[in-house]
Each structure stands twice: as C-alpha cells, then as structure tokens.
Design a protein around this nucleic acid. Sequence first.
DNA 1: TATGAATGAGCCTTCATTCAT
DNA 2: GATGAATGAAGGCTCATTCAT
Lengths: 212, 212, 212, 212
Amino acid sequence: MTESPKPRRGRPPLSNKTETRDRILDAALEVFSERGFDGATVRQIAAKVGVSDPALYAHFKGKKEIFEALLKLAGPDLLASAGPSLESEKTPMQLAIPETFGNIVATWSTPRARAFASLVLRMGPDGLSNMLQDVSLRLRPHFTAWQERGELCKDIPVDVAIWQVIGPLAALRITYLHGNASKADVARAKLLAKTHLKIVAQTLTQSRRQEE
Amino acid sequence: MTESPKPRRGRPPLSNKTETRDRILDAALEVFSERGFDGATVRQIAAKVGVSDPALYAHFKGKKEIFEALLKLAGPDLLASAGPSLESEKTPMQLAIPETFGNIVATWSTPRARAFASLVLRMGPDGLSNMLQDVSLRLRPHFTAWQERGELCKDIPVDVAIWQVIGPLAALRITYLHGNASKADVARAKLLAKTHLKIVAQTLTQSRRQEE
Amino acid sequence: MTESPKPRRGRPPLSNKTETRDRILDAALEVFSERGFDGATVRQIAAKVGVSDPALYAHFKGKKEIFEALLKLAGPDLLASAGPSLESEKTPMQLAIPETFGNIVATWSTPRARAFASLVLRMGPDGLSNMLQDVSLRLRPHFTAWQERGELCKDIPVDVAIWQVIGPLAALRITYLHGNASKADVARAKLLAKTHLKIVAQTLTQSRRQEE
Amino acid sequence: MTESPKPRRGRPPLSNKTETRDRILDAALEVFSERGFDGATVRQIAAKVGVSDPALYAHFKGKKEIFEALLKLAGPDLLASAGPSLESEKTPMQLAIPETFGNIVATWSTPRARAFASLVLRMGPDGLSNMLQDVSLRLRPHFTAWQERGELCKDIPVDVAIWQVIGPLAALRITYLHGNASKADVARAKLLAKTHLKIVAQTLTQSRRQEE
DNA sequence: TATGAATGAGCCTTCATTCAT
DNA sequence: GATGAATGAAGGCTCATTCAT
C-alpha cells in the first residue's frame, strides 16, 4: 500500500490496465484523510501510487477532481450499505434497530470506511451535517411506519427519534472509527454501539408517561 | 506648530499592547475554523485584523504558534466550563445531568465556542478523540460517586455511562453547533440536547432488568 | 466470412503514406500562425489533424522539426511565386511592376499564404528582415537591367528603388493579408497595392530633377 | 541593463524606491520583445531585474499584467510622439511630412522604441493592424485639412494618402528598426525614410493627370 | 510595533517526448 | 503508423517568513 514497484520510463509492463485510476483513488483517500484537502499534495498521492505526479493528470483533471471523485464514492458508503433489514419497512423496530445499525457499525469498521470518515471530517462541519441530514431523510419512511404501527412511541417526533439513534452513532464513528483508529478503538466503538442500540431501541418503544 | 499633533483624549493606550494579540487570535479563530490550518493563510488572518501580515510576527513566532495558542484556549473551553453543578460530587445525578450538561450546551452555542468546534473538527479525528477522552477523564469521579451512591445503576460500566451522556452531545456539537450554524441549527441542537438528557438521566437510573 | 471486410472500391491507398505528413503540416501552419511557436502546443496540432499527439512523432522528430519544415515551405512561397513577367529581365519596368507585383499580391491573398504571413510575423523581426533581404537580392538583377536600359531613373540607388516597391507591399501584407484577415482587409490591401504600384512605377521612371 | 547587483535576502538597502516597477517593465520589454509572450518566462524577467520571481508579484498581478502594462506604454509611444509640427493643422504639408515623420523615425530609432516594435510584432497581426489603424485615425484631421487647402491633391482618398505615407514607414520600422537591429540597419532605415518621405510628399502634391 | 519589499520553498499544472504495445 | 500511459523539465504563482526601516 505504501511501497511502490517504481516503474521505469514509459508504459509499465501492463498488468494494471485501467485500474490505475482506482489505485489513485485509494492513495488519495489515504492522503486526503490524513492531511485534509489543503494539506495533501498531489505529489504525495502520486508517490503513494508509485508514479510521478503528472501521471495523475491523465486520469483526473486535477487535484479537486480527485477529491470530488472520492466524495462521490463516500456518499453511498455511509448508511446506504445498511443491509437487508432496512430494505422493507415491515421489519419490526425492536429487531431492525439493533441488527441493522449494528451492521452499519460493522461496515464502518473497515479500514476503507474509516478513512472515508476522516475524509469527511476534514471537510469541516458542512460535510458532516449534509451527511447526517441525508441519512435522516432516508431513514424517515421506516421510522414513520414504525410509529404508525405503534412500535415507536408517539410522544416523540420522528426526526428526534431518528437522531436519538444515529446521532450517537455518528459521534462514535467520528471519535472511534476514523482513519488511524487502533484495534482497541474499534472494539470500544462496537461495544458502545451495541449498548447504545439496545437502550435506544428500548427507550423508543416504551411510552414516556413517567416524564411527568 | 506649537500644539501637540496627538489628540490624546479618551481612552489611554493602556491596553494597546496585548490587545492586538487577542485581536489576532480572534481573527485566526475565524479563519482557521473556516478553512482549516492548511487552507488558512497568514494574509487572511492579518487582513481580518486590519494589519499587514508581517505584523503578526511581532506577536507570534509563526502560523503554527498562532494555531497552538488557539488550541490552548480551546481545550479548557470545551467541557470544563461546565458550571457549578459539577463542582461538587455531591450533586445528585438526576439533577446534575440535565442541568449541568444543559449549561454546557448553552455555552457551546455562543459564536466563539462554535468556531472552536469547527476548529477542532478540522484538525482531524485526533483532535476530537483527545478532547472526548479528556472530558471523560474529568467526568469519571462524578460518575463513580453516583454509582457508589446508587444513583447510577450498577449494571453499566462507568465509562460507558459517561459516553452515553456525552457522546450524543459531541455529535450534536459537531453537526449543529459549528462555526457557521444557522439559528435554526442552534435551536434544534438545544431541543435535541434537552430530550437526550432527560432520557439518558432516566435510563441510567433505572436498573435494566427488563433487558433479559 | 468469405467476403473480404474491406470494401476496396474507389481510390487506392496509394497516398496514405505521406498524406498524413501533409495534413500535419497544414494543421501546424494553422496553429503556429495563430499562436506562434511557443504558444502552440503539439496537442493542438495533433487534435486538428485528428490523431493523438505521439502520432506526430512518427513523421517528425519533434515540434521544432515541424516548424522548420513549415518554414522551408514558406520561404519560396513569398516572392518567388512572382509569375512569368519577372522570368525574363527583358520585360519593361512600366509593365512589369504593376503586373508582376500585382500578381504577387494576389498570391498573398490566398488563405494559405496569409497563414504563412502570420507565421513569419510571429517569428519576430529576423524572420521578416531575412525574407525582405532575400527578395531584394532576387529582384536586383531585374532592377539593374532596368536602370541600365534607362527605364529606371539613375538618380536613385537600385536597392532604394527596390525597397520603394516592395517595402510598402510588405507592410500591406503584414497589416492586411495575415491569417485571420477579413474579406474587407483583403480588398483594401488590393486597392492600396494597386495605387501604390501605379504611383511607384511612375515615380521611379521620371527623373527627379525637381528635387534640387 | 543585463548585469544585476544581486541583493541579499530582505529589503535591499533602499535606493530604488518605487522605481522597481519601472525596472521590471524595462526588463520585461527586453525579454518579451526577444521571445514573445509565450516564449518569455517570469523567471527570465526577474533575473534581468536582479530579483527573484515572486518579487514581481508584489508589483504586478501576473505575467499577463506585466505584458499589458507594457502595451499601455507602447500605444502612445508609436506616433503620438510625433513632435510639434503636427500639433497644429496649419502646418503646410510639404513641410510637415518630411519634418514630422522624419522626427518619428528618429524616435523609432531609440533602443527602447525598437524593443517596442519587436514587442508589438510578436503579438501577431492584430497588434500591428490596430496600431496602424489608430495612427491613421489620428492623422486624418491633418490630411483632411491639407486636402481642403489644396495642398494634397484631390484625386486620392485621404485614407489612401495616409497609407501612402505611413505604410512604408511601418514596413521600415518592422524590418529595420526592431529590437536587435544593427547600427547599419538603423542608418539604412533613416535613409530609406528620407527618400520615401521626399518622394511621397511630392507625389501627393502634384495632381495625377498624367496617369491617363 | 508595524510595514513594504523581497525570498526560498514548494505547489499545481502543462508540455514535449518516450516506451511498450 | 498509431495509441495509452507515463515522465522529466519547467512554468506561473502562492505562501510563510525575514530584513531593513
């Protein structure tokens, strides 16, 4: 991933056809997530790929385009990979929440997903807000269905409920599931997520009479 | 020719010395939080202060030093400004949690605190992790005390409990209480925080027999 | 499967070999004349030809060689294409000047010749000087003959006389007969040339006694 | 002009206050006229000034701006410096033409003016056309006056007459009075100009009955 | 303390050119 | 003969920083 075969002048002996583009994206993900857009240099990316920097310009129009291509990959990655449990709105909440979101956290634990987390983080608050908002939107039909079926208690507005679930997960992701998280971090994140999901599933179910 | 050309009426220059330093820090906070360390330029900071860029070097050794000075201010700012309720470990949890942490969220809502949030965010995941960990450490004695007094249910490890409280708050801060958050964002954050704290206080109290 | 897939009807590929070379030169003429040597890029030329840029290197050793090949074509083009009237030194001056040089101007009006004009222009003053000097040299025998036969007044040195004729024509070419000259420009150039040639022919004939 | 005092780091010992801007323009004129816009590099200009290239950016926004600043100086330089004879339209043509335009040619002979000539030349045909047209426009009132007073024969349209005068001069300038013209070139240009002006003045005066 | 002018380092990008196919 | 991929060189420009004032 870091070591490069250092190809001679001219076209390398063929083996990586158009996959160079992907190798660039991989390297860029690494570098951008470590240093942010402004902190990263084209040279660093190229070096990580094992080519000279002008080579990148055969595949992308410029630094910005590389970054944007990366973002386009990051979007779907976030929650969309939620897994089957959320496919249908019929799944009962008590089941869907621990399972589905558990899966998501598992997905987030892969090195690649963690790098993406750092990437988005570095973009500043807007990156995160938009992402959360996006996810919120996609979750809404499920939560509405649950509330209509009485699985989700009615005292609480849907979007607040949604946030109850994903807000802490986002925090988890950001603090424990970033690019250079240790194994311990990842383990801890999984534990916290599990606890959180258990509790939140339970809390959202029971009516909140006792508040008064 | 006889009159002194300096009309020294009004406020004496008593503060002029270090005042500039603070103005620089203010400007830097703004710029750094908007663009990140690498994206910000010394010129931008200087321009915002209204001086030429070499002027900054009379107060700081360089860009990095300005940034670090800012960070030194940001640290304490985060949670330490928790307010009186946490001063003593005697305060009962049911009371301390909604009140204290409510105050914290209020503190976070000021423009300055929001700028700091963006600043730390831009630093990448380490900034956040450290911050959270730091806070966690400082909160630990209180939570331990509560658990010993039976106010915090004993099925849950303290640090998990701590995270139950502050994790979501961190998420809130990051997504809704950043540098250029709208008024609506801030309001929403407050609402979510209130709901969260109410629920979490309650959840942490009651034993979790029903899990089985 | 039995039929040959190549429908070889029509013109046989006899010319395909060097035809590309010419197409390159054409494209290069256009590009170089529009942007100058340094402003032009190999890619632009290749694009105009409709091939990829390394393709050019199969026909020329490099950018410079293309340019030089072009120059080799431009040289003869300038005045040499003077037409029959100058073939023999016998033609009387009164006739030769309006006719011959009129033809030359006509030649200069073709798009290709105009592109060449721009090309040479872009090369800086040396290009022009050399060109003029070259022409001057080739014209000299004719003018000498005319002077010896008394058709050209003897008060004036031959080379001054020559310049009297071609100097203004050069100016005309440069200002009105360049690459992207409008139709109006061309028309104007022809008019000015005609007037000029008429007058100059006349002036050069008559002795200049009246100067004293 | 070429040798530079090579100042140390930081501000040079003061002696050239704001004149640096002018020194840049001088150097740029030299470099641009020798290599054209695209062929010249900012580094070359800076080197000729004796500073490092970023220094130029304190005075100009970029390479283009330097070039344009130069052009703004070139415009007036051309013919405007015509001298007193053209100030009033009363000056008789027979006198004005040899004298005034003689002065102009003298002006053109200075190294600086010659560099400008090369500069404009390198810009391609448009530069020249515009320049000629501009001059033509400014000359028109004088020629009209002369024609009305009968000093300029009426058989010829004013703009053709104007071109009769300045066209050859332009040719002269371009071919003999460019940046790196030799002394001989300059001398020759002056001779040719003198002859030309004498003849043209005479020709434009006398009616052209004899044409028929 | 503050500034105008200047600098070394380095960045993103383009260009002419080459290599293997 | 032509192409896709890659490269060394260099170019324009910005940046943090320093110097003399």
